[in-house]
Computed example of a mutant assay.
Amino acid sequence: MDDEYSEIVKIALRDAGNKLLLTNQDSTSRVLPITKIGNNRYQLSFQNTLSIQPDSLVSIMESSLAKLGIPEHYRVEVLQCEDSEVAYSYEMMSVIDNSEIPCAERDLPDACYILQVRFLNGPDLVSITYLILLAIVILSFGFAFRKKEDPELAAVERNYAMIGNYEFHLEQSKLVFNQEESNLTKKECELLEILNERINETVKRDELMKRIWEDNGVFVGRSLDTYISKLRKKLKLDSSIKISNVHGVGYKLEVQV
């Protein structure tokens, strides 16, 4: 149940992120994949810089979460990318009179921001079931009428992720490009999953090796380079995809929009 709830939260936060971009007259840049960074805590980030109007942020977040029936008791923090300092924060409670929403003297200027949202009351079984049913109804209605498909919503329904023009089927250990399938080994799947979770971000070499090899009791220095090379070959049909070697740090899965 927790996995289903997390997916619903990610859909709502992605919707909020897209609306924030539209307030900046930006309809082309991407909301990066929503990540769960702790218990009932999620992170929302953007491909490009943006300015944030606190009043708009409050109303957009409330609308996007309420649309999927997510409980209203949550805290939002806007962090500056360069130093992780909190530029703005507020807390929303189920009773609006008790919400702590500070007035901002001015809009947050155009810069790189990360939004972190923490839900202060964990969902119970009844709430999760209700949210799942509500999400199914909303998504079914949306799929019938929207012209352009949202990749993250589609991934929930189809159970695969889009990486550029590739379909990444984690459970089936394969990539699909123009109906042509390419099988992946277990290690290739694990590596691609981690890189895709933090797309367009550098993932440290030590982290990759620890999560994929050391946790399984095996630690081979050249294994990572070998599997990166294999993934590059299997993703080469899409020129918008590149796995970059950040010298001395790690690797980055880059997808051009």
Rank of each mutant, 00 (worst) to 15 (best):
S223Q: 12
S45F: 04
I34N: 03
V156I: 14
I194N: 09
P33H: 08
A104I: 09
E167I: 04
L133Y: 07
Q47C: 02
L184D: 04
S173L: 15
Y88N: 07
P33F: 05
I194F: 13
S173Y: 12
L65Y: 06
V246S: 07
R118S: 14
S84T: 01
W213I: 00
I163F: 05
V257N: 04
S223P: 00
V95Q: 10
E7H: 12
S244V: 10
V9D: 09
Q80L: 15
L79E: 03
S27Y: 15
L65D: 03
Y251I: 05
S51V: 01
E167N: 11
E7V: 06
H73L: 06
E82D: 15
L208D: 01
E82V: 09
E77Y: 02
E91Y: 03
A154N: 11
E197R: 14
G221R: 13
L237D: 11
V58A: 06
P102D: 11
R118G: 09
R14N: 12
Y160D: 07
S64Y: 00
K186A: 11
D97A: 11
E193Y: 10
L192N: 05
R232G: 07
R158I: 00
A87L: 02
K236D: 11
T49I: 05
G38L: 08
A111L: 02
A135R: 14
R106P: 00
K252C: 11
L170T: 15
D107L: 07
G217E: 04
L120N: 08
